[in-house]
């Protein structure tokens, strides 16, 4: 069977995570939640530790801890702490507690590196099912709520007036973020999940005129980075997760340059659009 090939499984895992992360990453960028994504990802290592202690599934452990973390941040953010301070405290203490907790677990040999940097080549059939289940869930949520999410992102008052509750949409995004983190853990690891969210979206921005085109382009860039990263890592025997992220960064540099050139050209021509 075709899924018996570990490279095929790796490619499918990469595509799945790319498709879930890219549109969500656009919202993370638009709402300036980049650090929030980071914090959720760092909390994941605590989720790993908990799921090992309680011997539950990794996915469930990471999901629960990520959501818990998001909830605490939301509750505290109105209480006199600046958001970035709060996220900094939460992210790094969750990571630290996670690392300490992992060290207490005896009897199980844990490859910590696999969680920090991921191991896409070790993705099994069950992992694939979890990844694509999560991807379907996140893409379904995004598609279903797209207009409402977008309106809430644009302006909270405009959303309220149109009967959209921005707090509810925020929770949808938080939930999706937790799912993507849980799903992407195996592929790129805790330290690079945020990169997979943000870099494709940032790379798509200079060439986009509407939110929809940006999300679509981000998905294409993410899939390209995943597949070419896998291939490159195979050729040069480099670590796969970091190679994928490196290639996404290269694509970011290329589109930024293209956007810059296009602006120059259009400024020389008749007055036209100017994406910032």
């Amino acid at each position: 069977m075709i899924l018996d090939d570990f490279l095929v499984r790796a490619a499918l895992a990469g595509i799945g995570v790319a498709l879930a992360a890219a549109p969500l990453g656009c919202f993370v960028v638009w709402r300036r939640m980049a650090f929030f994504g980071d914090a959720t990802a760092h909390a994941a290592i605590l989720g790993v530790a908990l799921s090992l202690v309680l011997s539950t599934s990794l996915f469930a452990g990471v999901l629960v801890v990520s959501l818990l973390m998001a909830m605490i941040v939301s509750l505290l953010s109105g209480k006199g702490f600046a958001m970035d301070t709060l996220l900094g405290v939460m992210a790094h203490s969750a990571l630290a507690f996670g690392l300490v907790a992992v060290s207490f677990i005896s009897g199980v040999r844990i490859d910590l590196m696999a969680y920090l940097f991921g191991d896409i080549l070790a993705v099994g059939k069950a992992d694939l099912a979890v990844i694509w289940g999560g991807t379907a869930l996140v893409m379904g949520l995004m598609g279903w709520r797209w207009s409402r999410l977008l309106t809430a992102t644009l302006n909270a008052d405009l959303a309220h007036a149109s009967g959209v509750d921005p707090r509810r949409e925020r929770w949808i995004l938080t939930l999706s973020l937790a799912v993507v983190v849980a799903v992407a853990l195996k592929v790129v690891g805790v330290l690079l999940i945020a990169a997979l969210l943000i870099i494709p979206a940032a790379a798509a921005r200079p060439l986009s005129r509407t939110p929809e085109s940006m999300a679509l382009l981000a998905a294409m860039i993410a899939v390209t980075a995943a597949l070419s990263g896998l291939q490159t890592a195979y050729w040069f025997d480099t670590p796969t997760g970091p190679t994928i992220v490196s290639l996404a960064a290269v694509l970011f540099a290329v589109t930024s340059l293209a956007g810059h050139v296009r602006r120059k050209v259009s400024r020389a021509g008749p007055a036209s659009d100017r994406p910032p």
Binding site: S147, R148, L154, S162, R205, T210, P275
Partner: peptide, 16 residues
């Protein structure tokens, strides 16, 4: 936000 691309005609159709 500068990161959010949005044409005027797209803005007209938000949320419906």
């Amino acid at each position: 936000d500068a990161t959010l691309p949005m044409t005027v005609s797209r803005l007209m159709s938000l949320p419906r």
